[in-house]
Design a protein around this nucleic acid. Structure first.
Lengths: 251, 251
DNA sequence: GACTGATACTATACGGCGTATAGAGATGGT
DNA sequence: ACCATCTCTATACGCCGTATAGTATCAGTC
């Protein structure tokens, strides 16, 4: 906690005997982010971070109690990349969706951060600011705060789910050496071969897939899953926010 | 794929020379589930599964190409625990929420399954049936299939997010040896000590938290986070389904 | 200016992981 | 009886987080 907030309340008050520390915590965190980004699916390793800053793995334990703490520091640090949406333009719906899209982009850039636990939040300053700005936007709707908290929960779930899907799609392409298209071709060929009665057993699924209106292609090199996920997020949140806005007749 | 569907299309057609296999794939999958359940945050290890069935780790590679495939088999197998909600009673809203709650319970029982990738789905028969039954319910609304697909996406995100939160809360309690209450006390004490101006910097967050209407206690030993998560899921999905049901005036 | 004690860092080691590789043992067709 | 073929075992490699012990470097004291 003291590290997260760079608090000087509980500074070492050291007798200043012995050698001075050679590193700074910010440099370690920056190295940690760089290392984790370079292998998003695995995340950081103490050895790799140490090498990045030019010490042995064990030297890091003088600055940080364990790996989890370092990950928490890195997790909070990347949230500084999110710009404050509170002072943005537009109505609350559009600003909420923009908030979600910014956060998805953040998690796609730093996919390792998706494995940081929800159950016992980090409570760092930057992460806190991201939540604060969302609540600021939602408060303008003057809705019931209980409803608001539920909405916030679903928003985070949707954001992390979307980012995870995109990150996993990218990772799968690298790990398997197989294009999304190739994989799909292989998989559907395997399905055809091994289960001939798919259509009979799962008529609803087939129907839903067949009703798919095609996405326009894209020239930015993003994959199909990626574009599909982002479109679904935007429209899906549209549905959710419709429900949030409406006076609720049910329950 | 052939393994998932227990297809006999591509059976070995072996010359039947050499010793007979000592194991059956179903026994291995059952052992895999047992092992993974016994340590949900780590999931299965080849060595542990092998020990469970009484062979060495490498022997498993005669039945399964690699660990990922075994996880995929286990992942599909647990979906057989979900009862078909299509023939259930009640209106589509309640049946959809029941579907989500069943799936959350499944993922809480088998938290390791939450780490199975979304990007390149498993496409096993049991998992497929779970999706099929949801689509069957949603089709009774005669809504636009594009909207429906977006709803399905959000539903899965909400389910996995909720289950993940609960599973992580349980895991954290075991791993840290710290009750949720203890942790909260420690954390908020740390916050108070290290950042005195929290209220000034994050007024909206403070407001949202202070508006919390207390949950009734529970006597089933479930934690606060757990009950809160389930309540939020039910009400949050209520909001979402309101939005789905409504003719959409926006965009 | 030598000595002392605290401190920052290094070296090594442990038990875990997935799985490549090589070899042993059993089996059934010839 | 032989041996090709198949199942399973044994061993090893390079990773991981981090406990433990040892070494180098400094500030203060005499």
């Amino acid at each position: 906690m003291a590290l997260l907030w760079r608090s000087e309340v509980a500074e070492p008050v050291s007798s200043s005997r012995g050698p001075k520390p050679r590193l700074e915590i910010d440099a370690i965190v920056a190295a940690a982010i760089a290392v984790a980004d370079s292998n998003p699916s695995v995340g950081l390793t103490m050895r790799a971070v140490a090498e990045q800053v030019g010490v042995t793995a064990m030297a890091l334990y003088g600055y940080v109690p364990d790996k989890n703490s370092l990950v928490a520091l890195a997790y909070d640090a990347i949230h500084a990349e999110i710009s404050d949406c509170e002072r943005g333009e537009g109505e609350w719906r559009e600003r909420t969706i923009a908030w979600a899209e910014d956060l998805v982009a953040l998690f796609v850039r730093h996919a390792w951060a998706l494995r940081v636990s929800y159950a016992r939040p980090v409570f760092g300053p930057n992460e806190q600011r991201v939540l604060e700005s969302l609540v600021g936007v939602l408060r303008t709707t003057h809705q019931n705060p209980d409803r608001m908290r539920r909405l916030v929960g679903l928003l985070f779930y949707a954001v992390r789910g979307t980012a995870l899907t995109i990150a996993e799609a990218r990772e799968a392409e690298v790990a398997s050496g197989m294009t999304e298209e190739d994989w799909w071709r292989t998989t559907s060929a395997g399905l055809d071969e091994n289960v001939q009665d798919f259509g009979d057993r799962f008529p609803n699924t087939i129907w839903l897939l067949s009703q798919q209106s095609d996405l326009p292609g894209s020239d930015d090199g993003s994959s199909y899953v990626e574009r599909q996920s982002l479109v679904n997020l935007r429209s899906g949140l549209g549905i959710l926010l419709d429900g949030f806005e409406a006076a609720t007749p049910h329950r």
